[in-house]
């Protein structure tokens, strides 16, 4: 006799990132178990950013350029929860007494399947076998207004894309679009969030004709409120020349 059980755990966290200001320094994430297995989730906040080195983009903990540490000013509830299949949990947070400028923390949601109760299972084996899935959602708090200062280094270009390394030298994060302009014509645009350093690939409608480009920026970023867009100014355009 062969038995098959089909069960899987699946966690979704919404929203995927949050930018809040001192006007409403609170909010919530919603965790939803869309799978068929119960899961347990451990929620924590860590100082860090999502940033790139020369080849990859990932989570960098313990440093965030000139952005402040929000973890010390953050309270949230709950710190861990068990979610049955199909259930959801609201994780509420509040920010208190943060100074002027931009502050960041990474909300870390570590999910583990609970599985079925098996009689006689050795506890160390049970917890050792289960896999922990990690989700990270940046939580950024802005107090005051500012304009991010960016510098760009070209990494290379193909016929239909350009690769850039964008670095942020200010205490304000950049959320918005990067537009590639040549001879007054828009060749391509890509959205990105740059906290410290970010590799960005911009698809182009036509190949770059010469080695001189103009990069313009905007604050249209998917999901970002208009009021926050106006709080973060538009960086100055950058002329890009490479050999």
């Amino acid at each position: 006799m062969v038995h098959h059980t089909y069960a899987q755990a699946s966690l979704s966290v919404t929203p995927a990132y949050v930018v809040v200001t001192d006007e409403a320094p609170f909010g919530s994430f919603v965790l939803n178990n869309q799978g068929t297995e119960p899961i347990e989730v451990v929620i924590s906040a860590h100082f860090g950013v999502i940033a790139s080195n020369d080849s990859t983009t990932g989570v960098v903990l313990g440093e965030a350029g000139q952005l402040g540490d929000l973890s010390a000013h953050l309270t949230f509830f709950p710190h861990r929860c068990i979610l049955s299949a199909g259930n959801e949990q609201t994780v509420r947070y509040r920010i208190v007494e943060a100074s002027n400028g931009a502050h960041i923390t990474l909300m870390h949601f570590a999910m583990r399947e609970r599985g079925a109760i098996v009689n006689g299972q050795i506890p160390e084996v049970a917890s050792g076998l289960s896999i922990v899935y990690n989700l990270v959602a940046p939580l950024i708090y802005l107090q005051g207004q500012g304009i991010p200062t960016l510098s760009v280094r070209p990494l290379g270009h193909a016929s239909h894309a350009i690769h850039l390394s964008i670095e942020n030298h200010s205490q304000w994060p950049f959320f918005g679009g990067i537009r590639v302009i040549q001879d007054g014509r828009l060749l391509g645009r890509a959205e990105s969030a740059v906290y410290t350093r970010r590799l960005v690939k911009i698809p182009l409608s036509e190949p770059v004709a010469d080695q001189s480009l103009r990069l313009e920026f905007d604050t249209d970023y998917t999901g970002l409120k208009q009021s926050i867009q106006s709080q973060l100014g538009i960086p100055d355009p950058i002329h890009l020349v490479w050999e």
């Binding site: 609170f26 909010g27 919530s28 309270t75 949230f76 509830f77 609201t90 509420r92 947070y93 509040r94």
Partner: peptide, 8 residues
């Protein structure tokens, strides 16, 4: 629940 600002 979303309108309760203080998580505790």
């Amino acid at each position: 629940e979303d309108s309760i600002r203080d998580p505790s």
